[in-house]
Design a protein around this nucleic acid. Structure first.
Lengths: 347, 347
DNA sequence: CGCATGACTGAGAGCGCTTCCCGTACGCGG
DNA sequence: CCGCGTACGGGAAGCGCTCTCAGTCATGCG
């Protein structure tokens, strides 16, 4: 690779000159070379190579009006954000897919409520072609922002407002939370468990609600005392478990809405000398490898392909952007990814 | 905020026209307004506001040759990456600082060894003004890449080659690992412990080595059987603890190079019925809030301000970029951030 | 053999912005 | 009241690239 002399990189002009063609032809070659005869293509490529030419991104963006960048907006006031393997795996998937399409990942962390202004300005500023967002809470202002900015956006997780009629559909990627929950609870029932409790997640997150719905699908007329609410954290899971044991010492199984809470629940059960799975069987959700496999006993849980979801989000967005540009292809539709039950020792 | 008619955003030209000034004057106002009389400034700002003008970033970059973006390169083949609260907090700090300076964060995840080519191309491509990187392993190709691309870079954690003489200094931000370790071990000794073991991190990470050095600073002629090596993971910590107990059943304290390993060590001690801190005192490192406070017993550990380190990294880089541009100010220098011992129950 | 047709290539016009350079208008002192 | 100096505003030149449009050349067919 040729050394870069400081401050001056070769331009297309230089490449064209060296190859003995016009700038237009050089440009054509650099952008795929359609309609340029082989010998010229080779000459240009040779010049590119010799000069170490790298296209100027800003100039290209200026004329094409496309940035080749996508924003990933993470708005999570809680600590959970990155520490949550969930996000990190999702981002990893996104990164892989974007990279494969020569698209940059611009990370936008929302630090506080006042930040939405900044985000809005940024998204409106034409810095990125599209956005990927994680819709978490009911009152999330993000959808409104992206809509007003006219930025194509794909959501991770079913946005809460998608239930509302009349709202325009937005593409999103989500796991089959309800189906997964159904399978999990059904499994517990097939095991012969009769008083299956549930520790749910925060009600303003659709994933939590969908999992609860799945639970109810199987246990139609469930006694409300068998249901407790947690906050998707280890601690809240422990609290909820304690609460359930208090209310229903007779319970013989718990379907917990995520692995973190399940690990908290396991701890409480262990502390109180309740044998898992003999006395109480536990099934979690997410199959976080850093949690589910290392609990004692290892957690039976519902697996979802989180990284795959990230990839899918990116792919959906890129496809949509491509469609905007070329004007053809089907409108991107939401995708529900499958879930599978992973049997370990806790149930 | 005015609605954007699709596809056409107001230009500086439009703002200038509406304000009744030249484009040059409008530009000056938008960029700070130096040397423009108050009434005109106001007129322009009013026009900007009314039109909802947002500068075209590509055009600006094209002429100024500055992108207003910084790359954050994370090259960690292991899973640890994001799941590691370490990175997430660091990134959070970086994000805050960059945001405060209207600079974008472009995330570059290295997925595999072959990816370095892509990273190199990207960094050379003038997409970003600078880079922040986490130097982890001895043979990391990143430093060479950024140097060749001529991209100002600040490292997180002391790069291993900084020990080599003759190598040009690179700015980095790191905690006072050695000092922190010293304080921790000294604390154990002040407690009256006499056979203080050490579980170290991977030898190709400077933080691990520096902590080991701190340990040795206090325990000058330490018996090598008291030192075991781990990989900064829970499991490796457990393994190392088991190994130490095997070799030296008489040990009465362990200084562990990070909290994750410490939690693994605690588990092993608990399983074997060794009382902590009565029989064996444990001190960790990092003070990860998701770990140190929730172990049983809560972990005495060495705290470092990780988010602050991230901020510092960004600040150092921005200062360097500013210096490159204006040509004045001191060259950015590396920073070692202080560490403090946090007393909890494990020692 | 001549002209039409198609396939390529080249010239040039900007994309929106910053900034240099020059003209001018205003300030002040004499 | 007039001259000069200073500071501010305006014109214009690109930054590097894409893409339309027109021109060129070779070929195929009548």
């Amino acid at each position: 690779m040729p050394e870069q002399s400081p401050g001056s990189r070769p331009t297309l002009e230089a490449v064209a000159a060296r190859a003995g063609v016009s700038r237009a032809t050089a440009s054509r070659v650099v952008n795929g070379g359609d309609g340029v005869r082989k010998p010229l293509v080779d000459k240009v490529l040779k010049a590119v190579d010799e000069l170490g030419y790298i296209p100027n991104h800003a100039a290209r963006t200026l004329v094409t009006r496309r940035t080749g960048a996508v924003a990933v907006v993470i708005a999570e006031p809680e600590i959970r954000i990155f520490s949550d393997p969930f996000f990190s795996q999702q981002i990893r998937g996104i990164s892989k897919e974007l990279t494969a399409h020569d698209t940059q990942l611009v990370l936008l962390l929302v630090e506080g409520p006042g930040d939405f202004d900044r985000i809005a300005r940024y998204l409106s500023g034409g810095h990125v072609d599209g956005a990927l967002a994680f819709s978490l809470h009911t009152d999330d202002p993000l959808p409104a922002i992206t809509r007003r900015a006219g930025i194509p956006t794909v959501y991770g997780g079913r946005p809460s407002w998608t239930a509302d009629p009349g709202d325009q559909a937005v593409p999103y990627v989500d796991a089959d939370n309800r189906g997964g929950a159904r399978v999990a609870v059904q499994y517990l029932r097939d095991l012969g468990r009769e008083r299956i409790a549930h520790i749910g997640g925060p009600p303003d997150q659709t994933s939590a609600m969908d999992r609860l719905d799945g639970y109810r699908d199987v246990l139609i007329d469930v006694d409300p005392t068998l249901v407790a609410e947690g906050g998707f954290t280890v601690e809240s899971g422990a609290r909820a478990m304690a609460e359930l044991l208090e209310r229903r010492p007779d319970l013989d199984a718990v379907f917990v809405a995520n692995d973190l809470m399940a690990s908290g629940a396991l701890r409480v059960l262990r502390e109180r000398g309740v044998a898992v799975p003999e006395q109480v069987a536990i099934v979690g959700f997410d199959d976080m490898d850093s949690v589910a496999a290392t609990t004692d006993p290892p957690l039976t849980t519902v697996n979802q392909d989180i990284e795959g979801q990230g990839r899918l989000m990116a792919r959906l967005l890129l496809r949509g952007l491509d469609r905007d540009r070329t004007g053809n292809g089907p409108a991107p539709d939401s995708v529900i990814t499958p879930t599978t039950l992973v049997r370990r020792a806790s149930a």
